[in-house]
Nucleic acid binder design. Structure first.
Length: 577
DNA sequence: GCCGTTTTCGGCCCGACTGTTTTCAGTCG
């Protein structure tokens, strides 16, 4: 009997996306490919789980007919469907991997594969080095460079993961060791404790008087593969096999636990900081046993520094002068800005997005669907803006005192203008301006384009300033100081996009923004109710950068936010008259 | 492969941009 697998909608969508790419790669009927793409677009907007549906129910879904319905059903039964299996069997795995390369699509990959016989990333890099790619018809030196850069970027991302990928794992693993070793003295240290956006290794500190016990316990963790050559009696080293991330477990005596935790949390620049003019924190923690991290800082004559700030930048001076900021917390947030609904490319309806947010205890939610230039994301043409506004007004009457603000994520066009006229822009409570197209830009071009949007009186918030996707693509280069200075001058709020793939504005620029008096808003860019939970990651990087409650726009209460939006909107209308 | 009929087969088909061409295919969002 076949095992029934309960797939999530996104897993099903992922399989169909792969099928689309493979069909294109194998030069199948373009209309068939379009149909699959349409089905994917419709499935993305579905609020109900596909897993429980019968074939006959599936056939009634928009864009889904007999064939696709049975494929969805089959996916749920077996995890695949015959056509996908056939396509995969006809494609070398290395060629399937190439589909992930940004800047080239299935057609170009087909040419490379068929003309040059290239079937792996290594061969592809070699072909770039040998100038074979540039020589292909329809290719040139620029395409070859694009491919080479993408391969090198992907190579440099190997064995690294987003913070969000390992957070839950590290928490569970700490509990596991605490239970097994009968102690509370187990903690994650290193990059994870510092809440770095990209994690290159997992480091744990475990206190026990019986070091041998750790190896015994780890036999229950098949996902952890030891590398005996680099391990020892007081350190276990190896890898977490699902992600490939290196893992290190330091085994210490209970007395030295806090010293070890301290020494393995701060970045080198933090530990090398001097206190009382001569000694470093590193020396201090190596010389004397402490019963807590607070005690270490006290001894050094500094205020306690939160782990996420221990990077060796401005936090040491602030701690010495007892001027450390009181960092924003999840509990400080009153509302959630920048969210998508089924009006554009979100998975949940306006009502669902709003009531969910209300039920989580927030005072307000801001809906920012895509604007009309984002055709691919079903961006809102003018009459649909009006339609959405009517629905928001109706819901606001029903849900009061909870408030839905009418926002939009307006595309910043190539010339820095926004893609609606002033009249339409003035109909929103506020505007998030973001770049989504033509991401290949020089720093000068990108900075000027952003400046254009910042100078638009209707722009309230600058969305994900660099467009980066961590571990997947670098953002366009920008002159941070110029952008932040302009936001200060034109009173534009900067978003800290909380999606773990973005975390953009980068936390390294938070302090500079605060010094210039720029407000920051921690926004999830949620495309479903689940997306709201990304706020947590945004708060972490914001804290890392030193953000306070006062300077976090969405930590403001409803009335203050409403007044801010209205004042700004009226000022903009007056300005363009 | 789906849809919508003039019900059983024809039509479906974003816009901007890049990099390659010398008029447009491929890619992206």
């Amino acid at each position: 009997m076949q095992k029934r697998i309960a797939l999530k909608n996104k897993d099903i969508i992922r399989s169909f996306r792969l099928a689309v790419s493979l069909l294109e790669l194998h030069d199948e009927n373009p209309f068939k490919i379009r149909t699959y793409s349409n089905a994917v677009a419709n499935l993305e907007r579905l609020e109900i789980p596909l897993a429980g549906l019968r074939v006959i129910d599936l056939e009634h879904l928009e864009g889904v007919g007999k064939s696709i319905a049975s494929k969805i059903f089959e996916l749920n039964q077996t995890g695949s469907f015959p056509e996908l299996d056939t396509l995969l069997a006809a494609t070398p795995p290395g060629v399937v991997d190439m589909l992930r390369i940004k800047g080239i699509g299935p057609k170009k990959i087909r040419t490379i594969w068929k003309e040059l016989g290239v079937e792996t990333a290594e061969d592809l890099l070699q072909a770039c080095e040998n100038n074979q790619i540039a020589a292909l018809k329809g290719f040139g030196t620029k395409t070859q460079e694009t491919i080479k850069n993408a391969l090198l970027y992907s190579e440099s991302s190997k064995g690294k993961v987003h913070y969000a990928t390992v957070e839950k794992y590290t928490e569970d693993f700490v509990s596991f060791l605490q239970t097994g070793l009968h102690t509370d003295l187990v903690a994650v240290a290193g990059e994870v404790r510092r809440r770095m956006e990209i994690i290159e290794n997992l480091l744990f500190i475990a206190a026990t008087d019986q070091p041998g016990q750790v190896s015994v316990l780890l036999q229950e963790r098949p996902e952890l593969q030891q590398e005996p050559v680099i391990s020892g009696p007081f350190v276990w080293r190896g890898r977490e096999t699902q992600t490939g991330v290196p893992v290190e477990i330091k085994i210490v005596s209970p007395q030295t636990f806090y010293n070890a935790l301290f020494l393995h949390t701060g970045a080198p620049a933090h530990l090398q900081a001097t206190y009382h003019d001569t000694s470093t924190l590193l020396q201090l923690a190596n010389q004397q046993i402490f019963a807590s991290e607070e005690e270490i800082y006290r001894k050094a004559g500094m205020a306690y520094i939160e782990p996420e700030m221990r990077e060796g930048t401005q936090e040491l001076t602030l701690a010495r002068e007892n001027r450390l900021p009181l960092l924003v917390t999840n509990a400080d947030l009153h509302g959630i800005l920048h969210n998508h609904t089924t009006y554009s490319d979100g998975a949940n309806t306006l009502t669902t997005m709003a009531t969910y947010c209300r039920d989580q205890g927030y005072e307000y939610v801001d809906i920012c669907d895509h604007s009309k230039a984002a055709f691919y994301a079903n961006g809102l043409v003018e009459h649909r803006v009006k339609e959405q506004h009517r629905e928001i007004e109706q819901l606001n009457r029903e849900l009061a005192p909870f408030k839905i603000f009418k926002g939009i994520e307006a595309d910043i066009l190539a010339d820095g203008s926004l893609d609606y006229n002033d009249e339409v822009l003035s109909s929103f409570d506020f505007v998030v301006a973001s770049i989504h197209s033509n991401l290949k830009m020089e720093e000068k071009k990108a900075t000027e384009r952003l400046l254009g949007a910042i100078q638009n009186p209707f722009t309230t918030i600058l969305g994900h300033p660099t467009g980066r996707l961590l571990l997947q693509r670098e953002g366009y280069p920008i002159d941070y100081k110029t952008i932040i200075d302009a936001c200060a001058f034109y009173k534009v709020i900067i978003e800290i996009n909380a999606n773990p793939w973005r975390l953009d504005l980068d936390w390294r620029w938070v302090e500079y923004a605060l010094v210039q008096g720029v407000l920051l808003s921690i926004n999830p860019d949620a495309h479903s109710t689940a997306g709201y939970h990304d706020m947590h990651y945004g708060v972490q990087v914001a804290r890392k950068g030193g953000l306070t409650k006062e300077m976090t726009f969405n930590a403001w209460p409803l009335e203050k936010v409403a007044n801010y939006f209205e004042d700004r909107r009226i000022k903009a209308i007056t300005e363009v008259k």
